[in-house]
Amino acid sequence: MAIDTQIGQELKRKMTCIVCPTGCQLEVEKNADGKLSIIGFQCRRGEVYAENEITDPRRVLTTTVKIRNASLPLLPVRTTEAIPKELLAKAMEILAQVEVTAPVRTGDVIVTNLLDTGIDVIASRDMKRTEDVA
């Protein structure tokens, strides 16, 4: 559980690290001078995660966009990197309007510079044209 306790400028937060399946239980403490103390991580990535989670929480967005002329009506896509968490909903709305046409290859850029993040949305699988599928 992400539990926040705020006392003046000090902040104490418990969180689950989502970097890997281990799911370490982290505790972050922000002192009055703004310094962070982090405990509970089993690797360096957990420490970085906790720090980001306080300063700039981000998530990789995985979803679908519509695709024409393919054996399926949807193409799975992802952001190349994690985007700010508060942009997820807006990004979904934008991607709901996107429609592509097969064929598509894994890694093809579907949307460049999503919401000015400098991060692209790419296809996460191949999708052949229906006519090309025997």
């Binding site: 559980m1 992400a2 969180m15 689950t16 690290c17 989502i18 970097v19 890997c20 399946p21 799911g23 239980q25 998530r59």
Partner: peptide
């Protein structure tokens, strides 16, 4: 998994 509780529910 704990990470899925965090990133999918919380």
């Amino acid at each position: 998994l704990a990470r899925n509780i965090a990133q999918c529910l919380e």
